[in-house]
Design a protein around this nucleic acid. Structure first.
Lengths: 218, 218
DNA sequence: GTATGTGAAACCGTTCACAGCA
DNA sequence: TGCTGTGAACGGTTTCACATAC
């Protein structure tokens, strides 16, 4: 069955919130309650889960631990994936440092590559920056599955080409560039200037500039 | 008329690519050519533009400079917007440093706030890190319209609450948390662990692990 | 009684196909 | 002729509503 990407990203949101509920000691949750927490429609949750099976108990709800386990299994969160970083500049090195914190401990950077000679050999969070020429070898040796591009726009495409040659399975692209890749390499984009543009447009069309929101904004 | 967010983000993509075309000296572009560059359907472009008016010439196409100007006007890219950063850690300071590069020069960070005393007073890219207590005053004084949250998950909600109190119009949220905000404050999320999860799921369901892509991947 | 699981309906965004115009 | 602008068709996601099960 074909499952929409957006449903997958919702599953990831459910997992996070189930985790929080579990930490609070909540044992059972209904689709209405979970939907309320996630800010979406209850039927949506039930439909999303229905893609993969039946995890609830009618008249009761979902057992938090059990549902969390199932979603983690579906998303592959029960295994660790290995990441390689291309571009160890400002953004890149902050990704290395934030990896533990922001990604839920299911992804590990195991290599970093950079074009600039002066960065080669630097150690960031235990990762030694390697030259681009080592990419092919290291990606194979370390079993890197996903390449993360934090390179400057000007050479992001080149970075992608090299990752594809080294046969990574997927690419997470932080540059504001449409990467051209073969169809069998999956690409996800993280594009914050795009998000800022959307945010700005919404503010403009809501007439929020200059600030006209009411004083009772708390 | 209600315009879907996704159409807005496409406009932003069109603008980028029109800019590139303009730099190459291209004067006229058809929806087919532009669609090809952006990797989407030509009718989509024409529909997106039709939300805002008629910018093309039948039988000819779109004048690059003219269309670019119009899109930039629609998106509000003709004015500079002021950003305030909450959380000047790894990610935060790399955002400050990357701002010029990644955002197209239409956004400027004019203040940074942090909770940790040892960071107060540090200067990053000309921005002096201020304590949270100064947020209200500085946001008003500096006319900050958008708050950017790069705080750790644990206090992202608190950061949002303070930004809302200080009456920013919108929030760009880099933390993996669903922020609870009043309806008149627009929030956009940049959530890369979500993107990684989607990428991973797609890889799993395509059977890409362990790496089984063909050797002729170039 | 309560909450899930699910067919049906409503909604929305995308694509087609062609009329209209340079 | 060539390409835009747009009503209509299409496809997919979201929501509703209820049968089903605890």
């Amino acid at each position: 069955m074909k499952i929409p990407s957006i449903a997958i990203s919702r599953l990831s949101v459910y997992a996070r919130n189930l985790d929080l509920l579990d930490q609070k000691g909540v044992e059972v949750v209904s689709s209405v309650r979970l939907a309320d927490i996630c800010g979406i429609n209850p039927a949506q949750i039930r439909k999303d889960l229905a893609y993969f099976g039946q995890f609830g108990v009618r008249g009761v709800g979902y057992y938090v631990k059990e549902l969390l386990f199932e979603i983690r299994r579906i998303l592959g969160l029960d295994k660790e994936w290995r990441l390689g970083l291309v571009g160890v500049g400002n953004l890149g090195s902050s990704l290395l440092r934030h990896a533990q914190l922001v990604m839920n401990g299911n992804y590990t950077f195991v290599a970093g590559f950079d074009r600039k000679p002066k960065r080669i050999g630097l150690k960031v969070e235990g990762i030694e920056v390697a030259p681009l020429g080592d990419m092919n070898r290291l990606i194979r040796e370390k079993g890197i599955e996903i390449g993360v591009i934090a390179a400057k726009p000007g050479w992001a495409q080149q970075a992608a080409d090299m990752l594809v040659k080294a046969e990574v399975c997927g690419i997470l692209n932080f540059s504001p560039i449409q990467l051209q890749c073969p169809a069998d390499v999956f690409v996800e984009n993280v594009d914050f200037s795009l998000k800022l543009d959307v945010l700005r447009y919404r503010l403009i069309s809501a007439g929020s500039r200059p600030r006209i929101r009411s004083k009772s904004a708390a």
